[in-house]
């Protein structure tokens, strides 16, 4: 009687990631995004989701990709966390996966140090590896701020160099 986890899988770069289906609100095409000044670069801006203002984060940039080209398959995963909605831009959203709970391994310790503390585990489905994400960590203001600051410094350094 092993429990199964229901996971929505999506691609960012070459990897497949997964979030629990319960935290997903909906998946939408990428609409026009209004950029917000003074925000870290992986925060794309805000969108109008049927009259609600939802902030959108580019997961590709969040995971370190520098140039993220817009593609037709791009989607926004609207997730609900702690009563608020947030959008995540992904390369494509593919499938709903059922992973037995015992097929999930704890993330390697190196992830924790590398600023990727939003990974809760690695799931194995028919030979593929799914990186499971923890919404609360991904959207936690603390992780965003520290990341944002380091980005700020980088850009500042760049600007200075020029």
């Amino acid at each position: 009687m092993s429990r199964e986890l229901h996971i929505v899988g999506f691609q960012v770069g070459r990897e497949t990631y997964g979030v629990p289906i319960t935290s997903l609100h909906e998946i939408v095409r990428v609409p026009e995004i209004t950029a917000v000044p003074d925000a870290p670069d992986y925060l794309e801006g805000v969108i109008n989701l049927r009259g609600k203002i939802v902030s959108v984060m580019d997961l590709r940039k969040r995971f370190g990709e520098k140039q993220a080209a817009a593609k037709r398959t791009n989607r926004i995963l609207v997730v609900e966390h702690a009563g608020r909605l947030a959008g995540l831009i992904v390369d494509s959203a593919s499938e709903v996966l059922k992973i037995p709970a015992d097929a999930v391994e704890a993330p390697p310790a190196v992830f924790q140090e590398g600023g990727l503390n939003c990974v809760t585990g690695l799931g194995k489905v028919s030979g593929r590896l799914i990186v499971l994400l923890d919404m609360s960590k991904l959207l936690a203001p603390a992780s965003l701020v520290s990341k944002g600051e380091s980005e700020d410094k980088k850009t500042a350094a760049k600007a200075g160099a020029r």
Binding site: A39, K52, R84, L139
Partner: peptide
Amino acid sequence: IKALDEQTFSTDLVSGASILGDGRVVL
């Protein structure tokens, strides 16, 4: 006026957002 998600956007330059008739978002 609709509030921005303060937890993600720490900027104080923007006090809120609004939605226009054509669905565009304005800060």
